[in-house]
Simulated scan of single mutants.
Amino acid sequence: MRILLVEDEVGIIQFLQQGLEEEGYSITTASNGEAALQLLLENNFDLVLLDWMLPKITGIEVCREFRKKNKTTPIIFLTAKDTVQETIEGLQAGANDYVKKPFSFDELVARIKIHFRNQETQVLNLGSIEINLSNRLVYVNNQEVTLTHREFELLCYLVKNKGKVCTRTQIIEEVWDIHFDYDTGVIDVFMNSIRKKLNIKKEEDCIKTIRGVGYIAND
């Protein structure tokens, strides 16, 4: 799991980075808000630990700008600000959680694990393909791929039923919500588009066509 740690105090950065890496997390650091925002917009992180008071751009401004891009990566504020109004302001800016300084490292790790547990139910995987259900984003080898609404729904249906043959009738009924005779050839058109966008090579195809029946997704 990749965590972006944004903090301007060197001692805290070193302490948290060492401790979190020992817990098995991959840590990237930033010491000012401007660098943090650039990293967030150019990379895919699983969680952000964000200090409020930062040079150049404050943490709360980073949070607001990041959320404007419809990014849903969990953000935990690490801050000495502790009034009720400040807590509310941070949450309204888009933060998911709030840990007040000084804090227990064990408590922080526990909160991080809770957020990752919540995320696990929102992510589907098929080989090198990752589907984030909460923000409807698809990645192949960590590179974002843009799918249409119907392509996304079709891919999700197949991956949710990984290992099972999905018939054309089932797909039309569940994905298209059509419950009468309909030309199921439209499914092939969407599958061709999905394969092309995901750059799935024929010999490595993780979504196989079962001729005359439907499709099956397998790792």
Rank of each mutant, 00 (worst) to 15 (best):
I187L: 08
K196W: 02
I194Y: 02
K196D: 06
F180N: 08
D183R: 09
F180D: 09
T184K: 12
D183Q: 14
K196R: 15
K196F: 07
W176I: 05
D177A: 10
I171T: 13
D188K: 07
K197T: 01
H179Q: 13
K196P: 00
I194M: 06
E203H: 14
H179P: 04
D183A: 12
F190P: 00
N199P: 08
D188W: 03
W176D: 08
D181E: 14
N192T: 15
N199S: 13
N199Y: 08
F180W: 09
I194R: 00
H179A: 08
V186D: 07
F190Q: 10
M191H: 02
N192H: 14
M191S: 06
I194V: 15
D188H: 11
T184M: 05
I200W: 01
V189R: 09
N192F: 09
D188Y: 07
D177R: 01
K202F: 08
V186L: 03
D183H: 12
I171D: 13
N199I: 03
E174W: 06
D183P: 02
H179I: 07
N192I: 05
K201I: 02
G185Q: 08
K196V: 00
V175G: 06
I200F: 02
N199W: 04
I171P: 01
V189I: 13
D188A: 11
N199V: 08
V189W: 06
M191P: 00
V175S: 08
D183V: 11
I187Q: 00
F190K: 02
I200G: 01
I178D: 01
F190H: 15
G185R: 06
S193D: 14
D183K: 13
I187E: 09
V175Q: 05
E174V: 03
T184V: 10
D188G: 03
Y182D: 04
I187M: 03
K196C: 04
R195D: 05
N199E: 14
I172H: 04
E203D: 14
D188F: 09
E174T: 09
N192V: 03
I172F: 08
E173Y: 07
Y182S: 11
N199R: 10
W176H: 09
F180I: 10
F180C: 09
T184G: 02
F180A: 08
I171H: 05
I178Q: 03
M191L: 13
K202A: 15
E173S: 12
D183W: 11
L198W: 04
M191W: 02
Y182T: 14
